[in-house]
Design a protein around this nucleic acid. Structure first.
Length: 430
DNA sequence: TCTGGGGTCCTAGGACCC
DNA sequence: TCTGGGGTCCTAGGACCC
């Protein structure tokens, strides 16, 4: 059996831990640049605030309903996430083997082979209670014979927190059938908007229970090949999605941002891209990898500026490195000519990004005799820079190419304190 | 009238997730 | 005036090889 433990309205819950006065009040958290609403509590849902909707369109409604609004505070959420995951590992692993797969910042799958079916209920409640007591974050627990069924259980547990108290276990055929009959296809984990529309409009399939009974070859044809087949098997109770190895490294590393103010000249565009490249290179080094390709993209508003519509258009250029690297100045050196190539006079840029690909372990990098940069020296420099920036915080050591004024930086007008990761922003108890 | 078969590597793009 | 920022996996199709 598999469990999935999912934090309720995670970002909002993190804010509430340090603002007990908001415990029963509506709360929302905004995306970077205070653009969209990316987390909302049940009270905010009731007040009619949608998910992933532009903030400015709901501003008056939010004020009228007395909703507390926060800019995203990823330092805080990242640290709270670590606390939740550490707690789960402490309970589940018993110092033996790793049975926890951290699936996202607020969710983890747990393999439960070691728990007898008769104890599942007690175990699920224990997970929930301990995480809530130790971290202050509320969670829901779903359990089923496959990952997809555990996700289904979790969704239903969250919908009826009263009766099932945030825990739902799908074990018997009857429990599974009831759950799948009350799950619409668009709510199945793995069915997105496109497939949901197709299933309903073209084939009249509306529930997960109906979908469970289509032939495998049909699923292969209509739902994206082997992906569809796996989904079908999982719905039928046959595990087709493995637990992921926690040591697996990212195969792609991206740093992308909307600009706080539009950029129209080359210099700030290059500063922004250099800054993102430096950030991406840091992520690369943190997992001890090197990248063999770099892709730079820029986004402009494709529509005529007179129309106040958002029609983003993307353009990009990429470069394959002569040999994989994780050295910031080397990567910036490859990135800058790509920005020159992309830049067009008179165009307003809304966003830019860096994507590093072709990721390999850093120790597999072969010395390139023709490389101009002496690798050992550069790597040592990177280590020193990372150490200084990590211990002092706030990017004390930067490259000149990343700019001094940085007018393009994002807005974050409503950010809460980084209570758990900055001494000067600690939570005060009077 | 007829035009092989099998393989690899790469990129672009589509679908999904949180 | 204002619409996020990461990721994953898979498939199709082209270039190239023998």
């Amino acid at each position: 059996m598999y469990a999935i433990v999912d934090c309720n309205s995670f970002y909002c819950s993190c804010e509430r831990v340090f603002r007990p006065d908001l415990q029963t009040k509506p709360v929302v958290v905004l995306s970077n640049n205070d653009g969209c609403i990316i987390s909302r509590t049940d009270e905010a849902k009731v007040a009619g605030i949608g998910m992933a909707v532009p903030y400015y369109q709901y501003k008056t409604q939010i004020e009228k309903a007395g909703v507390a609004v926060f800019s995203s505070n990823y330092y805080l959420y990242g640290d709270m996430s670590r606390r939740v995951m550490d707690t789960l590992r402490f309970i589940v692993n018993e110092g033996v083997e790793d049975r926890v797969e951290v699936y996202s910042v607020d969710e983890a799958f747990i393999r439960l082979d070691h728990i007898p079916d008769t104890s599942l209920n007690e175990y699920a409640h224990r997970l929930k209670t301990v995480v809530e007591q130790w971290t202050g974050i509320r969670v829901s627990v779903g359990i089923g014979p496959t990952k997809v069924l555990s996700k289904t259980a979790n969704r239903l547990a969250k919908k009826n927190p009263g009766s099932s108290r945030g825990v739902l276990i799908l074990k018997t055929e009857k429990e599974i059938r009831d759950a799948l009959e009350s799950t619409y296809v668009e709510s199945i984990w793995g069915i997105g908007g496109r497939y949901a529309t197709k299933l309903k409009e073209e084939f009249g399939i509306t529930t997960a229970w109906q979908l469970r009974h289509v032939p495998e070859e049909w699923a292969r044809k209509q739902l994206g090949g082997v992906v569809g087949v796996r989904l079908l098997r999982e719905l039928g109770g046959e595990p087709a999605l493995e637990m992921k190895d926690p040591l697996e490294k990212k195969k792609m590393i991206a740093t992308t941002r909307m600009f706080g103010a539009r950029v129209q000249t080359l210099q700030p565009l290059k500063e922004a891209v250099a800054t993102y490249t430096a950030r991406a290179a840091e992520k690369l080094r943190r997992q001890h990898s090197a990248a063999s390709s770099i892709d730079i993209f820029v986004v402009t508003n494709g529509s005529d500026d007179q129309l106040y519509e958002y029609h983003p258009k993307t353009d990009h250029r990429y470069f394959n490195l002569p040999s994989p690297s994780s050295v910031t100045h080397e990567l910036i050196g490859y990135a800058m000519p790509l920005v020159d190539e992309l830049f067009r006079e008179g165009v307003k840029y809304l966003k830019a990004g860096v994507i590093l690909g072709g990721i390999v372990p850093e120790n597999s990098v072969q010395a390139n005799l023709f490389s101009e940069i002496s690798a050992p020296k550069a790597n040592k420099l990177m280590e020193v820079m990372d150490n200084v920036n990590f211990s002092m915080r706030g990017d004390k050591v930067r490259y000149g190419a990343t700019g001094l004024t940085r007018h393009w930086r994002m807005r974050q007008d409503l950010r809460s304190n980084r209570y758990t990761t900055r001494w000067e922003e600690l939570f005060e108890v009077k």
